[in-house]
Amino acid sequence: MDIQSQPLTRMLSHIVKLHHYSVHLMMEHGEVYPGQPPLLLRLARQEGLSQNELAQQLRIKPATLTVALKRLEKHGVVLRKPDEKDQRISRVYLTDKGRQISQEVREALHQLEEVCFQDFSEEEKLQLRQFLNRIHDNLKDNEKKYSAPDSR
Rank of each mutant, 00 (worst) to 15 (best):
M1N: 05
I3E: 12
I3V: 13
Q6T: 07
Q6N: 03
P7S: 11
P7Y: 06
L8C: 10
L8S: 14
V16C: 06
V16L: 12
K17S: 13
H19Q: 10
Y21G: 07
V23S: 10
V23I: 11
V23Y: 03
H24Y: 09
M26P: 02
M27L: 15
E28W: 02
H29R: 02
H29N: 06
E31Y: 05
V32T: 05
Y33Q: 08
P34R: 07
P34V: 10
G35A: 09
Q36W: 13
P37Y: 07
P37V: 04
L41M: 07
L43E: 04
A44Q: 05
G48T: 03
L49A: 05
Q51H: 15
L54D: 12
Q56R: 08
Q56N: 12
Q56V: 10
L58E: 08
L58K: 09
L58G: 07
I60F: 00
T64R: 06
L65E: 07
T66A: 15
A68S: 13
L69Y: 11
K70I: 09
K70C: 11
R71H: 03
L72V: 07
L72Q: 04
K74A: 03
K74S: 02
G76C: 02
V78A: 13
V78H: 09
V78P: 08
K81S: 02
D83P: 00
K85L: 14
D86N: 04
R88T: 15
I89D: 00
V92W: 02
V92Q: 02
Y93A: 00
Y93F: 02
T95V: 12
D96P: 03
K97A: 07
Q100W: 04
I101A: 01
I101E: 02
S102M: 03
S102R: 00
Q103K: 01
V105T: 00
R106N: 06
L109T: 07
Q111W: 06
L112D: 01
F117D: 03
Q118A: 03
Q118V: 06
D119Y: 05
F120P: 01
F120M: 08
S121V: 06
E123G: 02
E124H: 00
K125Q: 11
L126P: 00
R129N: 06
R129Q: 10
Q130A: 14
Q130H: 11
F131N: 13
R134A: 12
I135N: 14
D137W: 07
K140A: 11
D141Y: 03
N142L: 15
N142G: 14
Y146H: 15
Y146E: 08
S147N: 08
P149C: 12
S151R: 06
S151C: 00
R152G: 15
R152L: 11
